[in-house]
Design a protein around this nucleic acid. Structure first.
Lengths: 188, 188
DNA sequence: ATAATTTGCCTAGGACCTCTAGGAAGCCTA
DNA sequence: TAGGCTTCCTAGAGGTCCTAGGCAAATTAT
């Protein structure tokens, strides 16, 4: 019988597309096997287990997000960089909800160190443009990252749909507000 | 044989405790049945299905969180109210991680309208103390809620542990920063 | 070109979870 | 105390994760 030509990378890619279509929680080994027309057990030659698949998906997604943000903020600084970052971030989360959800999985530092670290570095790079230094730099980076993740997460869970105000408009104003607080970061 | 005396409320309470112990994703109908020493099928006289159990857990948790926050901000306004809110919010999330995770489930508006609405109203009440009005009120409420949820969510997923700076210290500074931006909310 | 080795996908099956159908035993009220 | 309702049961179907062991295809060595 002809082989399906599976690899860990092809599985991860397919899992990412599946996640965006049906939600990360519905990305199962069985569903993936069905997609390739093979039996469940066949996948275990390429991935260790379901958790391993999710970790690979998280690393892929973090890497894609870092690429997208990197391109968005290239050459910009200050408010321009922050807004570009915020728009790229929310854009990725809304166009790739399953992939985005995967970026929030808890990762071993040694596994995720690279892809998550790239992302962290970009946040910090933007904040350096605001003249922030340690420990304010880390505090501000945590707040900005929190606001970004919290916004897209709450938007997706429907928490914002209880009010008619446009979600896009609030996002732009929130970016303005973050810019303002970074420009005048309160010192202890 | 003696009856176990199950009710939907007792099941929900036990599910909440179980969620805090072993994580929301490990709260299964089977695990709950084991806890009460009954067969899985017995639970279906009290809950409709596993999703129904999670919804009940979400409503319980949102209600508890609203109670806690309500008590924390009682009588305070402005910065005091914001900080009390932030400390109570993060406190609930860290002492009840499973319950907190349940608050983030997407809820039908008619089901969650009450408990989630109570929470929303408290955010807005604090922001009224800063002299904010629509549409800034909603924009700021979304940003504050995002920062709160994002912070505890990222903290829990380990995103902050890649840096030695204390997570508690950053939180206090982040609350300062949010207070600052609310006092000088940038108008369009 | 053929033999040896590695690799990919298979069947079989166990463990756990969700949920339905239908039955028996406990509890409440008339 | 008899009827009716509720609670919990057994039985079982179907889904997911994963392991063990086998055969065949692809690759490498001879």
């Amino acid at each position: 019988m002809a082989r399906a030509g599976l690899t860990a990378d092809r599985l991860t890619q397919a899992a990412a597309d599946l996640a965006d279509e049906v939600g990360l929680e519905n990305v199962t080994v069985s569903a993936l096997a069905r997609h390739f027309g093979v039996k469940d057990a066949s996948l275990y030659s390429h991935i260790r287990n379901a958790h391993d698949l999710r970790i690979r998906l998280a690393v892929l997604s973090l890497s894609e997000l870092a690429d997208l943000v990197s391109e968005a903020i290239g050459g910009r600084s200050g408010r321009d960089a922050l807004v570009a970052f915020g728009l790229a971030y929310r854009g990725y989360a809304s166009s790739h909800p399953g992939r985005y959800a995967a970026t929030q999985l808890a990762l071993d530092p040694d596994v995720a160190g690279e892809s998550a670290g790239r992302y962290d570095d970009m946040v910090r790079a933007v904040l350096l443009g605001y003249g922030l230094w340690e420990p304010d730099l880390t505090d501000a980076a945590r707040l900005v990252h929190s606001a970004f993740h919290g916004y897209v997460s709450l938007e997706r869970s429907g928490a914002f749909h209880r009010h008619p105000r446009g979600v896009e408009a609030s996002w732009l104003r929130s970016l303005d507000a973050l810019d303002a607080v970074l420009r005048t970061w309160p010192t202890a």
